[in-house]
Design a protein around this nucleic acid. Sequence first.
RNA 1: GGGCGGAUGGCGAAAUUGGCAGACGCGAUAGCCUUAGGAGCUAUUGGGGCAACCCUUGGAGGUUCAAAUCCUCUUCCGCCCACCA
Length: 798
Amino acid sequence: MHYNFKEIEKKWQKHWLDTCAFRAQTDPTRKKYYLLEMFPYPSGKIHMGHVRNYTIGDVASRFKTLEGYNVMHPMGFDAFGQPAENAAIKNKTKPAVWTHKCIAEMEIELKKMGFSYDWQREFATCDDDYYKWNQWIFLKMFERGLAFKKASGVNWCPSCQTTLANEEVIDGGCWRCHTAVEQKNLDQWYLKITDYKERLLEDLGQLKHWPQRVLSMQNNWIGKSSGVDIYFRLKDSDKLISVFTTRVDTIFGATYIVLAPEHPLVQELIQGKPQEKEACEFIKKVSVQSKVVRAASDVKKEGVFTGSFAVNPVNNEEVPIWIADYVLMEYGTGAIMAVPTHDQRDFLFAREHKLPMRIVIKSKISVNLTNDLSQAYEGDGEQVNSGEFNGLANQEAKLKIAQWMEVQGMGKIQVHWRLRDWLISRQRYWGTPIPIIYCPACGIVPVAYQDLPVKLPADAPFTGEGGSPLGKVEEFVEVKCPKCKGNARRETDTMATFFDSSWYFLRFCSPEFNQAPFDKQEAKYWMVVDQYIGGIEHAILHLLYSRFFTKFFQDLKMIDFAEPFDRLLTQGMVLKDGEVMSKSKGNIVDPDSMIKDYGADALRLFILFAAPPETELEWDERGLEGAFKFLNRVWRIHENLKDQADQEIIKVLHRTIKKVSVDFSEFKFNTAIASLMELTNAIYQLGADKAVFLNLVIMLSPIVPHFSEELWQILGNKESIFKASWPKYNPELLVEKRVELVIQVNGKLRNKIEVSCGISDDQLKELVLKDDRVSLWLEGKSPKKFIIIPQKLVNIVV
RNA sequence: GGGCGGAUGGCGAAAUUGGCAGACGCGAUAGCCUUAGGAGCUAUUGGGGCAACCCUUGGAGGUUCAAAUCCUCUUCCGCCCACCA
């Protein structure tokens, strides 16, 4: 018979809820621990990814509780967003109704997993007392010029009928539906995240406990690139073309320059030239090309000559000006100097169009100085053909040339960034209304703070067909101007949902606070988040925005730290047959049916045991069965306890406590479980008393809480096991008197001997030489050298 | 093209950071037990060999008394960024 997990899990889940077992109370006398998992989008059902994410967090949270920390472990819902709108259209209901139904269903599923949340802190971002503070934050940003409206070319998804942030465009397609993104000129709200670029970059250095991978992704995304803006004068006028380069050391090898087809000077340059017609056609062709096609790396670089020339300031050489599709208006200055000998793209382009090349960096390896190259040389070397800079190492020349050019007024040392301002306007219904009023007399007027929240109307005629649905709700749109009291109209766009999730971790500190987004005092106690856990897919967007908001709050003096998350763990995906579980692949394993068959505890145990948290986890139901068997094996021990444990099992216990304590703090749950299994095996061999067994149960409790609570109670404890404390090991018990040593001859394992720990090196040498197997391998030769690693090994070198 | 990770039995994975490769589990094989169940218990389980032994951490070299671990080259896989100047 197996233990009755159904009854036990139900019983303890009810008990935890009834007693508010995981209520976090602010208590300045105690050390706090804020553990947070990325809150879910309420889709209605939890999937294995959620189960894994939240199980990892739950174990950490319960472990910290047992260690004596005052733990806060909250849960909420990232409830605004487009899927709710689509589902509402499909199911002929309202997004609010659908969302709340989904939240209710998910709460039940999360509770069935036995997660230790402080449910009293729960909120959903679609609650008006949450999104009110989105609007408040927006207004604060607006006051400081950090929220601003700009007409510009924006990414537009024709399928979702909405704009997208740069971050939401993936491979030229919409992150949600993968439709090719188009460019559209619209009046949109932006957040000036670029004002924070230096701090966002620099403070990455503070994040000592973030995965390297995430840091480098953020680093790439911010994309700081240092170089020089070089001014090329036009041959026939005084106008300048500014080009950006990170390789100013190659300036003497610039044999032509290339402009993006959209560059503002292009029309002037081609006007009246013989090439005008050809150039116009080319520009037209490129302009209709989608970004995806243009960015495809296998497409041949195309371009045309403008007919005009510019002058290279360093040597007054006339160089032809070309237009090509591989130069992008969005980056740098939209113009480049081309150095075909030292840039592969320039090289291919120059070869194609028979443009001149000149080597200016001599590679140390190759002596090739002819122009008969097979590819560009992009490495380091010595300057040649570079006037007064000849002979310098190119890295040194880079600095010297840059300084010299700045002094001469030929250019300016310049930094370009990849990071763009964050577009937050969405032409959607189910989101936070942007709290702005357009007055014919006063222009753009912010909604007054006392008028917040600008409530989202309960109903709007959204069809998914485009345009802002709020624009069709007259009683929403029509409003009096807060300044002149005249007739005015509200902004009808809503905010991108990433806005909502950029500060929710602060709201959890004081979810009911009604004076500000969060209570300073509460935030002072609970923040920063000690451990944050979530998927790698949020490595850039959500984490960058959250860091930005945190710095903004710091500037408002609402908090006194710069980074919100101390430790970050990005858990790996759950795979089935080597593939991501997805509806379209039909390989979804439903957590709920696994709970029915094996119980939540077994599911939690399996998911932690099968792989370390960061790596991908291959779903294996037989493994789950194995986890279940192990629990039954532990269960049976309590019926066969001895009155007294012998010394040997106590030693094993203390070794296990040491190992498991370390593993738990390092999130190595798989090896922690392995040690607990070893302890269990040892108990089967040696027997155990109640005290030993209870220690095992406590160590298991973060992983399998219902199971452990029940055994804890059966063995006579009145209070919850989570009121107990984590066991400590006795170091004296870990000291061994005798130890097994490995004997190697020339580094090969030849024998093992047991010796007392206090043995001296000389005694050991003697003992080893007497050993039969050793003398067999020595074949009469005398040892050259002994290498002794205390308590571990002896290696005899002959 | 750039960056960051990986590659260990039939499978998921360990390896105190340079010191017994394969802990723990799954699967498999054999046996035992029984109130036949979602059982349980005991052994064996990287490969070769009767054996002593030999081989084995994607591949090839190297450093070292000693390498899964460090170095060089190389192949494959994953993720991120990307005509980024």
